[in-house]
């Protein structure tokens, strides 16, 4: 069976331009070679810290950002290489929910008007039919039809997430990219939003690409998780095995740093320093500069994902030794 979505060696360079009489501005390599498949019906988590390229990757999959290199296939059909506008037409089955759905609505337009617009753009039938679809979508996310008359600023954060979800559910997508769907929400509201996401997925047979930095949520929600660092995937594994036994030193550090509700386990690995700028990437393994296990060879050899177990891939040349309990090297200063 062909996977629902296949990404093959996707590179995305942002900005950068030639200038007259001045040095050129080099592009930022936001995504540097991501290969990934997404199976129908799964929830794939995309985690990493700010600037790791997870949002850029999501926007590239959606088609808002054009890939510099690489190909994207949807149900086996190539949908990459087109201009952003055409790309969106080819990828109608993919939809995106913004991190801040309130700001994703035109402040001068009522909710009903904004929701209807999505249907108009995609050419959905007559007015009465559109009304019906909108009411169904609002009901599906637990809002009553009177919400249509109101304006974005009259809703709370949790309600706006529901509206954002309703907006794309009407378009009947197969894949939904959720960009930080719970950031900025209170814990009690977050739980209801997550619950809604799971419920809708079950009802509509959706596939989620779940972009998040909240590891507690990812752990509970996702089937598989890809850990990104500076535009590359450093580890890709089923959620259960990743949280039980992460192999890449960065993934380990990320998991160790995430606050957990159950105290007791002390932090074993705390990485030092901060990631280098994506505009000036080092040679070799991008994490080598902060890695407690780095060897001189790590700074020259570029790392690619290699399978370590069925469905578990890691981009580290020393994973075997690290898994076997190798001590940190002195190289990390």
């Amino acid at each position: 069976m062909t996977p629902l979505l296949e990404l093959d060696d996707i590179h995305v360079h942002l900005g950068g331009r030639k200038r007259w009489f001045q040095p050129d501005i080099p592009p930022v390599k936001a995504v540097g070679g991501v290969t990934l498949t997404v199976a129908a019906g799964e929830i794939l988590g995309l985690v990493g810290e700010s600037g790791c390229g997870k949002t850029t990757l999501g926007r590239t999959v959606l088609g808002l950002q054009r890939e510099t290199r690489g190909s994207i296939r949807l149900r086996g059909k190539t949908v990459s290489g087109a201009r952003p506008r055409d790309a969106r037409k080819l990828r109608r089955a993919i939809q995106y929910v913004h991190q801040d759905p309130g700001a994703a609505l035109d402040p001068w337009w009522s909710i009903g008007h904004s929701l209807e617009e999505g249907l108009v753009i995609t050419g959905h039938g007559e007015r009465s039919r559109r009304r019906e679809i909108i009411e169904q979508a609002l009901a599906a996310v637990g809002l009553d039809p009177t919400a249509q008359r109101r304006y974005p600023h009259e809703f709370s954060g949790g309600q706006l997430r529901r509206i954002g979800l309703a907006r794309i559910l009407m378009l009947d997508p197969d894949i939904v990219i959720l960009d930080e769907p719970t950031s900025g929400l209170d814990m009690s509201v977050q739980a209801t939003v997550l619950n809604l996401l799971l419920e809708i997925r079950a009802r509509r047979d959706l596939t989620y690409l779940f972009i998040s930095h909240d590891l507690s949520v990812v752990r509970r929600l996702c089937d598989r998780v890809a850990v990104m660092y500076l535009g590359r995937i450093v580890e890709l594994a089923p959620a259960a095995s990743l949280f039980e036994r992460a192999l890449h030193p960065y993934a380990q550090a990320l998991l160790a740093a995430a606050p957990r509700l159950e105290p007791g386990e002390s932090r074993t690995i705390a990485i030092r320093g901060e990631p280098p700028s994506a505009a000036r990437l080092p040679a070799g393994c991008l994490f080598a500069g902060r890695c407690p296990y780095a060897e001189p060879a790590c700074r020259t050899e570029e790392q690619v994902l290699q399978a370590v177990a069925p469905g578990h891939e890691v981009a580290c040349r020393r994973w075997r030794e690290i898994a076997a309990g190798a001590p940190p090297t002195a190289a990390a200063a």
Binding site: R85, R92, D100, A104, L105, I121, T122, R167
Partner: peptide
Amino acid sequence: ASLFVDALEGLGASPTRIVFLHILPN
């Protein structure tokens, strides 16, 4: 650069629609 224009592009709205129905009124 605002998110709502981004969202409209994500929905596949044409530039004419974005400019005249959203940017101009705002």
